[in-house]
Design a protein around this nucleic acid. Structure first.
Lengths: 235, 235
DNA sequence: GGCTGTGAACAGCTTCACAGCT
DNA sequence: AGCTGTGAAGCTGTTCACAGCC
């Protein structure tokens, strides 16, 4: 029986597209809650805050899931994007570092909702170990490898101080982890094949400050030429 | 007196470059702590985790601050990048939403260190209002506009639930704010001229999940063809 | 000799504009 | 008529490779 592949599925979705899929998914979930059955690229793009041509091109990388003259079926598209992102299975996540940030992450609702499950909390501070959070005891960092293996953790979130981050990364990578979300303000050194994504508050603030400064300069016309290096360094 | 501008300073630094300057700054501060006087593009690039040609091109957008045959003066470069990013002045930041995340942000050390100062904490919950955090009382959200004006706030961090974020954004923009760092998982609708940067935990996790899934597929060879849509939707 | 700064080639992403399907 | 999917054009960002300066 000659059975063409229904869709010549292109492997290799552009990174820029992958980075936007979560955005589309969220917009679609919003539409879904309001019981919208189908949506045009124009409307979905508006909800996601992107240009509609870009949206269509992005979606075309996943396959031909729209209907010309009509638009996209909301439920179907939610499913296809979820599947592409790997959210139809669920991922066990370990959070290392249960300080303020670690707690915030553990309590973060959107976490559990879609495909992710906090499967472990770990900390080096014995005052924190044993404490219960979101119905889970905090384990000691000594158990790191054991916990990862036993609970099938595949994504590790590093929410430790900067000084501990590299060491934690080394250990989890040795334990077989290849996906890390790093909140510590350091550049992690990792071997090829390990994906690290970085969330960095102070970087974001600095980028905002840059643009804010530019706006101020534009208004006053003064480029704030404090070019006297020696003087400035006295401060 | 004929006084040529010391450097024909190019306006319009590429966004990609601006986004990396904080990274370089951090690497430089590390070198500075270890009392390194000068550094080559090769070494600095290594510390920052980028390619050295890219580093040189990035720095060349700020001016000609290196010395051929030698490298860059660490202190001088720190100063120039800081100035370009607007970190030689300090920015008053307001944090709206004092939940777990807001607390984590308020306590975040790197915050204060370089150019940023938490000048206000605001929340809608009267149980939280009045509480003291990092030596500062939490104000009620009703005072939002007043606090922004009185304390010279120029950057607002939104750490509220998703449902409140747009409303907060509208109010701070009306009060004159043009730089927002948004942690709430929604697309904020803002007028032109307002910069919004977004930090989104679940987006980052979803991107990691995508790559993790790809790795798994590559190993097993199975593309996990759960193409039966109806069946999958039963779940 | 060593290292920066940069033109030129290249790669990737975005936007346009429209052919083609419903 | 309406809307998707996509070639083609344009733009932005990256990398190469080397001229130019120390």
């Amino acid at each position: 029986m000659i059975r063409r592949m229904s869709r010549a599925r292109e492997r290799g979705i552009p990174d820029a597209t992958v980075a936007r899929l979560p955005l589309y998914l969220r917009a679609l979930n919003g539409l879904s809650e309001r019981s919208t059955a189908t949506v045009s690229s124009e409307d979905l793009a508006l909800a996601a805050g992107v240009n509609s041509a870009k949206l269509r091109k992005d979606l075309s990388h996943l396959g031909s899931y729209g209907t010309r003259g009509v638009g996209y079926d909301v439920q179907y598209l939610i499913y296809q994007i979820s599947r592409e992102l790997g959210l139809t299975q669920d991922w066990a996540v370990a959070i290392v570092g249960v300080g303020n940030l670690g707690r915030a992450l553990a309590n973060y609702g959107g976490f559990v909702s879609r495909g992710f499950r906090v499967a472990a909390l770990l900390d080096a501070d014995t005052a924190v170990v044993g404490e219960h959070l979101v119905g889970m005891a905090v384990d000691h960092i000594d158990q790191l490898e054991e916990v990862i293996n036993q609970r099938g953790v595949s994504i590790v979130v590093i929410a430790t101080p900067a000084s501990a981050a590299q060491q934690v990364a080394d250990r989890v990578i040795a334990a077989g982890i290849t996906s890390i979300l790093n909140f510590a303000p350091v550049v992690l050194n990792v071997p090829d094949g390990v994906d690290v994504r970085k969330v960095d508050l102070s970087t974001e603030l600095q980028i905002l400050a840059f643009h804010e400064q530019r706006k101020a300069e534009r208004e006053t016309g003064s480029p704030m030429m404090a070019d006297d290096w020696a003087e400035a360094m006295d401060a």
